[in-house]
């Protein structure tokens, strides 16, 4: 098994593990832990046991990944392939978070409500302004005697 293949498979299992989706990770890991304790040793033993087992491991990782992809309804298939690009993944996730998060965020909703309230208040203001004009005349004479005392 080449080094590249080794890390590829490791990455797949890792992603499946972090994903915690499906049972693939537990099954694969339990099998591997039984076989050996260290990762590199695990892969050495896999070689001994033949490529068949590796195919199963790879397949299970892929299965878990497919499940994840289905759930998020996004095409992130490059995660598992050779075209894995961290920067690209980060960019994708960033745009997904910024897009989806905003509307559901309470603060953002509050902002929106505040903005609407402001708009309503400005609409109401002209109506309130009219009766206000009469009030200074009434209050002004009342205040004057109070000030003299």
């Amino acid at each position: 098994m080449t080094d590249k293949k080794n890390t590829d498979t490791a990455r797949k299992i890792w992603l499946a593990g972090i994903g915690a989706y499906g049972r693939a990770f537990s099954e694969v890991q339990e099998g591997l832990t039984k076989a050996s304790k260290g990762t590199s040793k695990v892969f050495d033993e896999l070689v001994e046991k033949g490529e068949v087992l590796e195919t199963i491991v790879t397949h299970k990782g892929k299965e878990a990944f497919d499940k994840v992809s289905d759930k998020i309804g996004d095409t992130v298939s490059d995660t598992m392939g050779d075209g894995f690009d961290m920067d690209e993944r980060i960019a994708k996730m960033r745009s997904r978070l910024k897009r989806g998060g905003g509307t559901s965020d309470v603060e953002a909703r509050l902002d929106a409500i505040e903005a609407k309230l402001d708009a309503v208040l400005t609409l109401l203001k002209p109506k309130k302004a009219a009766p206000k004009k009469t009030t200074p005349r009434k209050t002004a004479p009342r205040k004057k005697p109070a000030a003299k005392k």
Binding site: L15, A20, A64, I72, L97, S104, D105, A108
Partner: peptide
């Protein structure tokens, strides 16, 4: 807030942790 609220309101695939 947008980033932190995302998994709270809409659990995401944890493989993206």
């Amino acid at each position: 807030r947008q980033v932190l609220a995302a998994p709270v309101h809409k659990p995401m695939a944890l493989e993206d942790n």
